[in-house]
């Protein structure tokens, strides 16, 4: 649906040229949530602003639905922009307008008649869960509510694509989650393609189907979100993965725990594929072992659990062996931890 070819953006200053986006090539499928992650200065924000030409590309093509945005003239571009919704980090609402009027603004721009506008806005307010707040001004809303208005506004003209420029970066973790849920809901209900820019790993892991990791203007790694984080190749990606599972410290048990424990200590590794969610209790039922959960860090991504879990199995040698086989048969990696 969106094809990007050799997209570049160079800022020319008197002293030097700065290449913010460097020869990007990308294909984004219709209906997917595509995440772009990178540290600040990686060029991700410039990249998303190139997509609707808030920044003029220096070179390259951006083909959305068969039309090259880069080649479009002023008026064509204006119409094309009406089909590309955009959500901003700092919401960018008009403070002089109420929630209702803010959401109606893009409809006014598109020349939708007043009657239709009202029906449409009412529907959108319902969709983003702001019923009852129609006549509030942005200054009377919380950050999360403001972003809901921002999302409703971006959806007003039934866009094909939704661009989210750090849409959750100004929100607290809880509000972030609720906004992400809303985005997933919209993606499923409307089949909307979402391109999401962020520096927060949990945003990617929670909702993105595919991810591109950007560093110094280039995409250094790209692919299925779970796959990229399971096998990070580049240093940048590895740093992001650490941000996700809270560093390496959960990857092993301290030797004191290992030596004091009785029974067998095993480490389960979940890789996100077809994980049987009730593996622990099933093991206990199937085999004659007592199970103690010692430590773990398991993250639910949209394609399954990722992480590791340390279990202590107490029982006869044969039963422990049986339990290990059972776990392994459920496609979970299980390693026996040697005493030190």
């Amino acid at each position: 649906m969106i094809t990007i070819k050799n997209l570049s953006k160079t800022y020319r200053t008197k002293k030097q040229n700065i290449t913010a986006v460097d020869q990007l090539n990308m294909t984004i499928e219709s209906g997917e949530i595509f995440g772009v992650i990178g540290y600040s200065g990686a060029g991700k924000s410039t990249f998303v602003r190139l997509l609707n030409r808030l920044e003029e590309p220096t070179a390259g093509e951006i083909i959305i639905d068969g039309k090259d945005i880069v080649k479009q003239r002023k008026n064509e571009l204006r119409l094309a922009r009406q089909e590309i919704g955009m959500v901003f980090q700092h919401f960018n609402l008009l403070w002089s307008r109420t929630v209702h009027q803010n959401i109606a603004f893009p409809l006014e721009i598109a020349g939708v008649p007043k009657k239709e506008r009202k029906a449409k806005v009412d529907h959108l307010i319902e969709l983003v869960g702001l019923k009852g707040r129609e006549s509030a001004y942005p200054s009377q809303l919380s950050g999360g509510q403001k972003q809901r208005v921002g999302i409703a506004r971006a959806l007003a003209n039934d866009p094909k694509v939704l661009l989210c420029d750090e849409a959750t970066s100004a929100l607290d973790p809880e509000t972030t989650d609720s906004i992400l849920d809303l985005l997933v809901d919209i993606n499923k209900r409307l089949g909307l393609t979402i391109i999401l820019i962020t520096h927060e790993m949990n945003v990617i892991s929670k909702i993105c189907h595919r991810v591109a990791v950007m560093d110094t203007g280039k995409v250094v790694e790209e692919g299925d979100a779970v796959h990229v984080f399971q096998n990070p190749q580049q240093a940048v990606t590895k740093r992001f993965v650490q941000q996700l599972d809270g560093s390496e410290k959960y990857e092993s048990l301290s030797s004191a725990v290992l030596n004091e424990g009785t029974g067998t200590i095993i480490k389960l590794s979940f890789s996100g594929e077809n994980v049987n969610q009730t593996i622990v209790s099933q093991t206990a039922k199937q085999c004659d072992v007592d199970i103690n959960i010692m430590q773990g860090n398991v993250l639910q991504t949209h394609s399954g659990a990722v992480g590791s879990l340390f279990l202590q199995l107490v029982g006869s040698e044969t039963e422990v062996e049986k339990a290990l086989n059972f776990i392994r048969s459920a496609n979970v990696k299980a390693e026996v931890q040697e005493l030190v």
Partner: peptide
Amino acid sequence: DHGVVEAAKAMGAKNSTIMVK
């Protein structure tokens, strides 16, 4: 706020609309 002007641009607003509204 420059961001608001940018938001209006991203919605496909004409310059005249941006000026007045």
